[in-house]
Computed example of a mutant assay.
Amino acid sequence: MKIEKIVNLKEFLWIAYELKIGFNGILWVNDSVIVQEEKSVLSSWLQRFRVFVTEMTDVCAQCKTWRKKQYWNEFPDNKHHFFKIMLGDFENYLRIPRKFKDEYREKLSQRVTLRGPSGDSWTAALAQRGEDIELRNGWRDFVKDHSLEEGDFLVFQHVESSLFNVLIFDKTGCEREDSHFVIQGKGTKSRTGKGKCYESNRRPLTKKDKERAFRLASKHSTTRPSCKIRMKQSHTIPREFADNCLPMESQEIKLRVGSKIWRVSLNRRNVQCTLNKGWAHFVLDNNLETEDYCVLELADTGTSQQPLTLDVHIYRAVEKIVPLKVILP
């Protein structure tokens, strides 16, 4: 009988298994199979195999459709999420993903409630724009109070009706600490271990204010190792400075402004280096607020008896210092 075709071993085994083909008249050469059959018989095998694959593909597509329907129609609302990265003109509006919009078209009212990580809530209007819907009136207040900036990453969880929980992450991929200390309409609040809360009395910031603080901090000149950090109640130290200049173990260090010293805890966790215990008192004592900048200079590396010291130079978004207002927790 004439040899008609060489079939890959894996393909042939699939054919043999699914179509119950026997192994008579088969020659094995390495990892290939030489099929000794009439051409018409081999073609029939392959055709039946193609039909089988097509049917299985249709079944998989049906399963995918069923799962999608179950997820959107049968799962509780709090299982539904979407995310948005703050890009472009995000300060003025936020476009809802079309897929989410299509699935929730009948469930969302004209106004939605956004509940931030602090537990406070903001109301925003939904506006139609072509085939899209966007968060408009009220969204700018949410952006302003949370000091959102380009590159921030927000996760929206639909809780019920038109209520969303919102989580806020920064460019490091970690949740923004300051988002848990925001009061609706008043921006960021600070809390000390004594239970007191504080809020800003400073006038609203302009774009020039923010640029001013950044420009002054960038012009800071020193021959010592240094870095700058922007105040947003985030206290993460830039990784390059931390790895090159600071201890690799968690320990207490000193922050010095002029002749006054504060002791704070330097915390090492994975690749992050943060200032923890004592940092809140440093912030309050120096009346630091969001968008202010601090330049940290390595003054000395410390000894076995004395902790490392960082000199701190403060550059404010608003030059005039207005004491923080104490509020009840």
Rank of each mutant, 00 (worst) to 15 (best):
N267H: 11
R256E: 03
T236L: 14
S218V: 06
R256A: 03
T222E: 02
R224M: 04
F214L: 15
S259H: 11
R224P: 00
E249F: 04
S218L: 13
V257T: 10
E249M: 10
Q251M: 13
R215F: 05
N267R: 10
L255M: 14
K260P: 01
S221G: 00
N244C: 15
S250A: 09
L246Y: 00
R256D: 02
S221E: 13
N244K: 15
E249W: 00
R215M: 10
C227P: 12
F214E: 15
E240Q: 15
I261R: 12
L246I: 02
L246Q: 07
S234A: 09
H235F: 09
L266F: 07
R256Y: 00
S234L: 10
I229K: 08
A217R: 11
K254Y: 04
T222D: 07
R256M: 09
M248F: 05
E252T: 15
G258M: 13
L246G: 04
K228G: 04
E252R: 14
P247Y: 01
T222P: 01
K260R: 15
S265G: 10
I261C: 09
S259K: 15
T236H: 10
V264P: 09
R230E: 13
R230I: 06
K232R: 13
R263T: 13
V257W: 01
L266D: 05
H235D: 01
V264F: 03
W262K: 09
R268P: 05
R230C: 13
W262C: 06
L216H: 11
R256K: 15
S234E: 15
M231S: 07
H220Q: 06
F214P: 00
